[in-house]
Amino acid sequence: MKRAQENPFELSIMILTRNRKNEVLRAIQSCVECCLPEKTEFVIVDNASEDGTQQDVERFLLSHSCTWQYHYLPENIGCAAGRNVGLRISRGRFVFFLDDDAYIEGPKESFFQDMIRVMRQHDDIFCITTSLFDTKLNHARPFAPSRFHHSGEFYRVLMFHGGSSMIDKEKWLDPNRLFFDYQFRGMAELYPTLKGYFHGRYVVEMPSVRVIHDPSPNAFFSQRMQILYHYSGAVHVKLTFYPGITHPIVYGMFVLRIWKYLGRKGVSEAFEKLSNINKNLAPETVSLKQFLRLLSEFGLVNVF
């Protein structure tokens, strides 16, 4: 591994991967094609790949004179915990998370600098999420926008995409954890978004910075499992923060959504998933006033 300098980096580009050698090389290629800050490092966290990913990635980074850390995990610990590892070992103030099956579209000359500039100019923005076009869906993934907070360059959103976003570590509340380690999959980004929101630190989307998500055929979960993880994970995070008076509505919306996509049988499966994840529940309950502010800004359907 090429040793990084001891002084802090401006940017860490963090990519989590597992058995997607070709995809992760494409992701890294799209980064090196951009105009990078002088002090940039790559942080690759490998969730126990078995396809020779490390050798090919390090060969590529060496050939492009990059500075990097390659952290190989002996077992697959999931997206959330894997990204937390990347956050902990990254040495840049700004950490850009990129999925291994995504790549930067542009603008290549200012992709990273545009996000860094906005976060330096706005003390209350801790995370910027990019526009994300999904080739499988054939459209950009939607984000729930604020009703009030828009500018010509960005707008506040309720959640970011974990595989296409930049974090300012100096503004985040915990340098060692962004996500729940135990949340193997499913709406992990909602926890830092809400935690930041209730502490006056926000997530915005910048439509001008664009990433393409080209879902790998090497998928780790069926669509059914993705739905179960998605909605049970979201409810778990909401129960962490929302006042108790709102919990019946949270559960009611949970049942309706699962029934819509998976039918009656899916509801019992979903509650089993939720019961397992709720064993880790550690409430950080906010006041009703704080919650009503969130509700006013993003609306009932998005908040519940």
Rank of each mutant, 00 (worst) to 15 (best):
V209H: 02
Y251A: 05
Q223M: 06
L256W: 14
R264P: 00
Q226N: 14
Q226V: 11
P215S: 07
R257Y: 08
S232C: 07
Y229T: 04
V204L: 09
K279V: 01
G200T: 04
G186H: 07
L256F: 14
Q183S: 12
V235T: 11
K260C: 08
Y202T: 05
V209W: 00
T285F: 02
E269L: 13
V267T: 03
F198V: 03
Y231A: 01
V267I: 15
G196T: 10
R264T: 13
G244I: 02
D181W: 08
A219S: 11
Y182Q: 12
S275G: 14
S208C: 11
E189Y: 06
Y229S: 04
E205Y: 01
Y202S: 08
I227P: 02
P192G: 10
Y182E: 14
V286W: 06
V204C: 15
P192V: 06
P215V: 03
Y197R: 01
H199C: 07
V255N: 06
T246P: 02
R257D: 07
F220N: 11
T285D: 01
Y251M: 07
Y197G: 02
I249L: 10
A282G: 04
G252Q: 14
Y261W: 14
W259E: 15
Y251V: 05
A234N: 06
F271W: 13
I245S: 13
Y242R: 03
F254M: 08
P192K: 03
S208W: 00
F241T: 00
S275V: 01
M225L: 10
P283M: 06
I212L: 11
L190T: 07
S232W: 09
G200K: 04
K195N: 13
I249W: 11
A188C: 14
N278D: 08
G244P: 00
D214S: 06
N280L: 07
G263S: 10
E205R: 13
G196Q: 12
L274D: 07
K265C: 10
N218Q: 12
T193E: 01
E205H: 05
H236C: 11
Q223R: 07
N278V: 05
G200L: 02
G233L: 09
S208P: 10
I249P: 00
H213N: 14
